[in-house]
Computed example of a mutant assay.
Amino acid sequence: MRRRLVPAAPLLPLALLLPLTLLLAACGGNSAAETSTGTDGKGSLTLNVGDQKGGSEAVLRAAGELKNLDYKIKWSTFTSGPPLLEAVNAKAVDIGGVGNTPPVFAAGAHSKIKVVAAWHGTSDGDAVLVPKDSKLSRPQQLKGKSIAVAQGSSAHFQLVASLKAAGLSLSDVKVKYLQPADALAAFVSDKVDAWAVWDPYTSQILQAKQGRVLTSGEGVTNGLSFQVAAPGALADKSKAAAIKDYLDRLRRAQTWVFTHQEEWAKVWAKDTGLPYEVALASVKRTNSTRVPVAVDKPLIASEQQIADTFTQLKLIPRKVDFADFVDTRYNDDLPASTSAPRITGGS
Rank of each mutant, 00 (worst) to 15 (best):
W198Y: 14
Q210S: 09
I243E: 00
A241Q: 06
G211T: 00
F187Y: 02
I243G: 01
A241H: 02
T215V: 13
P231M: 08
G223Q: 08
A196P: 01
W195F: 13
K239Q: 08
K237S: 14
S189M: 07
R251Q: 12
F226D: 05
D182S: 06
Q210N: 10
A183K: 00
K237H: 10
K244E: 12
A233W: 07
T202Y: 07
V213F: 03
K237Q: 13
A183P: 00
L184T: 05
S216C: 07
D182F: 12
S225P: 15
L247E: 05
K209E: 11
R251K: 10
Q207H: 05
G219D: 11
I205W: 04
W195N: 02
Q204M: 14
G217C: 10
E218P: 13
K239R: 13
D248F: 15
A242M: 06
K209P: 15
A242C: 08
V192T: 09
G232E: 14
S225I: 15
R251T: 15
D182I: 14
V228C: 06
A185Q: 07
A185K: 08
I243S: 01
G223R: 04
A183R: 00
A183W: 01
A194I: 02
V220P: 02
L214S: 02
F226Q: 03
R251I: 14
Y201T: 08
S225F: 13
